[in-house]
Simulated scan of single mutants.
Amino acid sequence: MEKEATFSSTGLLQVPFGHVIGSEKWRGSQLAQEMQGKIKLIFEEGLAPVDFHLSNRFCILYITEADLVAGNNYKKRIVQLRNASNLQGIIIVEKTQMSEQYFTTVQKFVVLELGMTLLPVSNQMEASQLIIQLVHEQTKERNRNPFLKKKSCQLCESSVLQTVQQIPGVGKVMALLLLQEFPSIQKLSNASIQELERVVGHTLAEKMHTFFTQIR
């Protein structure tokens, strides 16, 4: 029997430990099917703009290939999530052969203009693996210290790290070094070549600066 999600007196969705709450629109999708059996997934109506809640505060907004091709309506959902002060979210975007031409636009909007975390996936199977990984990280943190309050921040830090690794030439070790110097995506993207080269050297600093300039 499915557990029911409830709302607290503050209006926050109460997600049962070890569960993910998904929007009803994803029931029967490949994404949901890939997650079933690996995590405990339950569905609820009225989660918009969020697609999946991984905890009371941490959530996923999923932009499909069709969403990108259809126009800019997806931006309204992202802004709604950005303005929800009680939620921390990651934007997952399907970057496929068909939608690749639109990816730079959404990347600029999400990362540079809004300062949010964006992770590209090639299909729903890859997205399911990413969500499962985030859920497992959350579970590890709670098992390590059941009284820890800021689990969602731990998840966001992991996602920001993955976002930085999307920059050409930047691996995990370099991403960690960059985030020690520039603690947010916005600060990193606004850094000068001189500031970047103190961490990554002149050649990579120039490449990174060019990359950020192109998506502005």
Rank of each mutant, 00 (worst) to 15 (best):
Glu137Asp: 04
Ser184Thr: 14
Gln129Phe: 05
Cys153Arg: 14
Cys156Gly: 00
Leu161Thr: 09
Glu126Asn: 11
Val93Thr: 06
Leu177Pro: 00
Ala127Cys: 11
Glu157Gly: 15
Glu137Phe: 12
Ser189Trp: 03
Ser152Trp: 15
Glu126Leu: 05
Val164Met: 02
Ser189Phe: 05
Gln166Glu: 07
Val160Trp: 03
Gln107Asn: 14
Val164Lys: 00
Gln88Ser: 10
Gly169Pro: 05
Phe109Lys: 08
Ser192Pro: 00
Ser189Leu: 02
Cys153Pro: 00
Leu188Arg: 00
Lys95Ile: 02
Ile92His: 03
Ile131Tyr: 07
Gln97Ile: 10
Tyr102Thr: 04
Cys153Phe: 14
Gln180Lys: 12
Ala191Phe: 11
Leu148Ile: 09
Lys140His: 05
Asn143Gly: 08
Pro168Lys: 05
Leu179Cys: 02
Met125Asn: 03
Ser158Phe: 08
Ser192Val: 04
Asn86Ala: 05
Gly115Tyr: 08
Gln194Pro: 00
Pro168Leu: 10
Arg144His: 13
Ser85Tyr: 04
Lys149Gly: 08
Val135Arg: 09
Val173Cys: 06
Glu197Tyr: 10
Pro146Tyr: 11
Gln129Ala: 07
Ser128Leu: 02
Ile91Asp: 07
Ser158Gln: 10
Leu178Arg: 00
Cys153Glu: 07
Thr163Lys: 01
Pro183Glu: 01
Pro183Ala: 02
Gln154Pro: 01
Cys153Gln: 13
Gly115Asp: 09
Leu161Phe: 05
Arg142Trp: 13
Ser152Leu: 00
Gly89Phe: 01
Glu126Trp: 11
Val170Tyr: 01
Gln180Glu: 13
Val135Gln: 14
Pro168Gln: 07
Glu157Arg: 15
Val110Thr: 04
Arg144Trp: 10
Ser192Gln: 05
Leu176His: 06
Val121Arg: 03
Leu176Asp: 08
Glu126Ala: 15
Arg198Gln: 13
Glu94Arg: 10
Leu196Arg: 01
Gly171Ala: 12
Asn190Glu: 14
Thr96Pro: 14
Arg144Lys: 15
Ile167Gly: 04
Ser152Met: 01
Ile92Gly: 00
Lys108Gly: 08
Ser192Met: 05
Glu141His: 05
Thr163Arg: 03
Lys95Ser: 08
Phe147Glu: 12
Glu94Cys: 04
Phe109Asp: 07
Ser184His: 06
Gln154Asp: 08
Asn123Cys: 11
Ala175Leu: 00
Val199Asp: 05
Val110Gln: 02
Glu126Gly: 03
Leu134Asp: 11
Glu100Ile: 14
Gln138Gly: 14
Lys187Val: 12
Pro120Ser: 11
Lys151Ser: 09
Ser158Met: 09
Val173Ala: 12
Gln165Arg: 06
Ala127Phe: 04
Ala175Ile: 01
Cys156Met: 07
Leu177Thr: 06
Ile193His: 03
Ile90Ala: 06
Thr104Met: 10
Ile167Tyr: 05
Leu112Arg: 15
Asn145Phe: 03
Val164Ser: 07
Lys172Asn: 06
Ile90Lys: 01
Ile167Gln: 03
Ile131Ala: 03
Val106His: 13
Glu181Arg: 15
Val93Ile: 10
Leu134Lys: 06
Val121Glu: 00
Ile131Asp: 14
Val164Ala: 01
Ser122Gly: 11
Glu195Pro: 13
Val106Cys: 09
Glu141Pro: 00
Val170Asp: 02
Gly89Trp: 02
Thr96Val: 08
Val93Arg: 15
Leu188Thr: 01
Glu113His: 12
Thr139Arg: 06
Glu100Asn: 12
Gln194Asn: 11
Pro183Arg: 06
Gln194Trp: 09
Leu119Gly: 02
Leu155Cys: 14
